[in-house]
Design a protein around this nucleic acid. Structure first.
Length: 421
DNA sequence: AGTCCACAGGAAGGGCAGGCGA
DNA sequence: TCGCCTGCCCTTCCTGTGGACT
């Protein structure tokens, strides 16, 4: 009989090394700083939504006709990032879906239009709605019109009130226009046995202005605007979540600091909770029992840097080759001139990009496509670009890297890993 | 005032992968 | 099984742009 302990600790029972102590043992004896980490997640739905009583009343009064069997008005909800639009809407919708005894079905469908490869095209969005009805939809092969037809049939079969909440609706509007909204409202008006109400959630206040008049007239029946949280309200939210999520309630200074930073950033509750959670994680890793103000400083830096790294990591190979081109050109300029000329032009970067593609046996994309990729990297905060006219020397984009120097080693590692595999 | 440059960015179409249905 | 159809990614073609230069 083999000694199971030696097998686990050395990886093979035939080695004669002294069994190493399990690397996780050191963590076993330590008490976690977290009572319930989920409580500090921005996506967590608490039992009560603080400082959003008015908005809850407004949304529920718009949706209340549903419990009497009438179609509620379509609703548009505006507000900056982290003002509680999504969580408040989902809170009300969850309550609505649990109303019993109204004699008919109420189905709530929530879709986040920003979800890449899930609901970022018209086809995928309708497919996602159909999946909510339990209908399998292939990724391709069916026309969008066929999907609409199937959706129409499913909705008619349901014979109740269907409320479709489209979060970050502006992202899909920018991509595919408002035909989708028009089709949904048209389907809604043609139904015999079911009724559809649409809730659009967006942080783009100008979104409604860009809609076609035919969509505006049917869609914008009710509007609610979420105001940003102030520092005091953020403070209350943080205290509430910290009590539930941490064993030791942090000092007032820590809570105030998280609230103040988030209040400066448009009253973003998501940011406040992320700060507190990451600060607690850092504190735990340092072996501390309390979250302190210096942990919040470290958390602030970590969140910003992690965001950049994750964005770079998720890029396709050609976008990484472009980032690589910009880094290389900066390095070469630094060698040649003694300083990095951070302002590069589209043409220069495209030449470098083609060389990098050749070196890695990749077929380079056209300059037209590369121009779009540069625009996307700008949107994601990896590059900074500005269109300038250089007179008779043409019109171009001035491009610089937006990645901080202290992240360069990690970004280079990601690029090397991807180009070696 | 007209010309020129080096792109930006819109529109249309091709190629590909994948599902449908005869 | 195979032709047809679809969405998506990409290319090709084209017009527009705006400040320096002539």
């Amino acid at each position: 009989m083999e000694d199971i302990d030696s097998f686990v600790s050395t990886g093979t029972p035939y080695e004669t090394k002294v069994p190493r102590e399990n690397v996780f043992n050191v963590f076993m004896g330590k008490k976690s700083i977290f009572k319930d980490k989920d409580m500090l997640a921005s996506s967590f739905m608490p039992d009560d939504i603080l400082h959003r009583d008015d908005e809850i009343t407004q949304i529920s009064s718009v949706l209340a006709p549903a419990i009497r069997g009438y179609k509620p008005n379509n609703l548009f909800i505006y507000g900056n990032v982290g003002t509680g639009k999504t969580i408040t809407t989902r809170f009300v919708l969850t309550q609505l879906s649990h109303v019993s005894g109204c004699g008919h079905g109420i189905k709530v469908v929530y879709v986040n239009c920003r979800m890449k490869n899930v609901a970022d095209t018209e086809y995928r969005l309708v497919a996602q709605l159909l999946k909510e009805f339990g209908v399998y939809v292939p990724d391709t092969g069916i026309s969008t019109n066929t999907l609409y037809k199937r959706f129409f049939e499913e909705v008619e079969l349901y014979k109740g009130i269907i409320i479709i909440a489209l979060d970050e609706i502006d992202t899909i509007f920018k991509k595919i226009g408002d035909d989708f909204l028009y089709n949904l409202t048209r389907i809604g008006s043609e139904l015999e046995h079911a009724k559809i109400a649409i809730i659009g959630i967006t942080n783009d206040l100008s979104f409604y202005d860009g809609l076609d008049t035919r969509v505006k007239s049917s869609l914008g029946e009710d509007t609610i605007i979420f105001k940003p949280y102030n520092a005091l309200q953020l403070h209350d939210i943080l205290i509430d979540r910290a009590k539930a999520g941490l064993y030791n309630l942090p000092d007032e200074g820590v809570i105030n600091k998280c609230a103040a930073i988030a209040a400066q950033e448009h009253g973003d509750a998501r940011r406040a909770l992320d700060l507190l959670r990451v600060a607690a994680e850092i504190s735990e890793r340092h072996g501390d029992e309390w979250v302190e103000e210096n942990h919040v400083d470290m958390a602030q830096e970590k969140i910003e840097l992690d965001h950049i790294i994750e964005t770079v990591r998720s890029q396709p190979k050609h976008s990484l080759a472009l980032i690589h081109s910009v880094i290389k050109m900066n390095e070469e300029n630094a060698k040649k001139n003694g300083w990095a000329d951070r302002r590069l032009l589209t043409g220069d970067i495209y030449d470098k990009y083609k060389k990098i593609c050749d070196a890695h046996a990749m077929r380079p994309l056209t300059q037209r496509r590369v121009s779009d990729l540069i625009g996307e990297l700008d949107m994601m905060g990896i590059l900074n670009t500005r269109v300038v006219s250089k007179g008779r020397y043409g019109r171009t984009r001035v491009i610089s890297l937006a990645i901080p120097n202290n992240l360069m080693a990690r970004v280079n590692n990601i690029i090397n890993e991807r180009f070696c595999n």
